[in-house]
Amino acid sequence: MTAQQSPHGLMRDIGGLPFASPGFRATPLLTLAASARRKADPIAFPQLVDYLDPVNAAEIFARHARDTPEEIPWTPLSPEQEAEVAATMERIVKAMPEWKPLFSIPTRFRRMEGEYVSSTSALIPQTVFLGDVAFTPAYPLEETLVHEYAHIWMNFIAEIADLQMESALENYTLPSGTGGKSLRGVLLAAHFAAAAVTFYLRSGIGGPRAEERMRYLLDYLDGCNKSTADDAHLTVMGQAVNGELASWAKSLRCEADEKFPIS
């Protein structure tokens, strides 16, 4: 982000938040994220695009990030899991063609050990960890991938300018009841919920429980937004993101009520 460019100006330049609307423009955000990485380590790689490689980015984060990422035990995905991820991403993009640029970025996939569904870390850029349970019918892989890619894209924004002040405590509780979260984490949770609701509303993909899940995520989104509304620890960028999320949530609620009227 240039010195002359405000966070609200950035939102105009990129067309809003990732996954929010067909007007979102991925290239300006990717360019700014790559530039932020190059600023941290100017001579690490010869080309700007090299900074978007997840292996290269992880090296930069390892050398320059203020925090050390929590270790996540992992092994490679099985060939069957790799094929299922690829096929699921194809279904998502076919159903939501405007999201193709969002799923076309360099990304690493890893099999996460333990009874976990999925995870990403801001300190391990563009890396999606998937547990074996993510490949079971209990967890639609479409939603899981939308969830984790939403985090990746919001983390690009946070790389340009953080969403919370350094004085913010990790004492927030998500609508699911998970406590000890950062303010930034609540914004990321709201963003994934909004992206997943958008997917369920507009993709045409979903089983019998899709509407129920969408309604849950709408309430989850509203709960996140209530937690962050007018929070004094939001940075200017955080305020811009928070405002976009609130507007998006209102629009999604109206769309859901029109498409699935509650009798």
Rank of each mutant, 00 (worst) to 15 (best):
K100T: 14
V128F: 03
I157R: 09
E80V: 13
A134D: 05
E90K: 15
Y139N: 14
P137T: 02
M89D: 01
T107C: 13
P106M: 04
T136F: 01
M89Y: 03
T144P: 06
A138T: 07
P137R: 06
W153G: 06
L130R: 02
F135N: 08
A83Y: 04
P106G: 06
K100H: 13
A83N: 01
T136C: 02
T144N: 09
V85A: 00
V146C: 05
A134Q: 01
S118E: 02
L130Y: 10
E90N: 08
I124V: 15
P137C: 06
I105G: 03
W153F: 13
E142W: 02
T136G: 04
A95H: 05
Q126L: 03
M154P: 00
P137W: 05
R108C: 10
P140A: 04
H151N: 05
E115F: 10
P97N: 14
S119G: 03
F129L: 04
P101Y: 13
Y116Q: 14
F135W: 05
D132Q: 12
I152K: 00
P140Y: 11
I124N: 01
Y149V: 03
A138L: 14
V85I: 08
W153A: 10
M154F: 11
A86F: 09
E159W: 14
A134E: 03
L102N: 07
M154C: 12
P106K: 06
V93P: 09
E148Q: 12
R91A: 14
S118C: 04
M154W: 04
N155Y: 12
P97W: 07
P79D: 11
A83E: 14
S119E: 07
H151C: 04
E80L: 14
E143H: 03
R108W: 10
I152N: 07
K100C: 13
I157L: 15
I92W: 06
Y116L: 14
M96I: 01
F103H: 08
V85K: 05
G114I: 08
A150C: 09
E115G: 08
T127G: 09
G114F: 12
V146A: 03
D132A: 15
M96G: 05
I105K: 01
A134S: 15
F129V: 12
T136A: 04
M112W: 13
P79S: 11
V133N: 05
M154G: 14
R110I: 00
L141W: 03
P106H: 02
V146Q: 06
V133K: 15
E159T: 05
A134Y: 04
D132K: 08
V128K: 00
Y149W: 06
P79R: 10
G131S: 09
M96H: 02
G131T: 12
L130G: 01
P79K: 03
F156K: 12
A158T: 13
I124A: 10
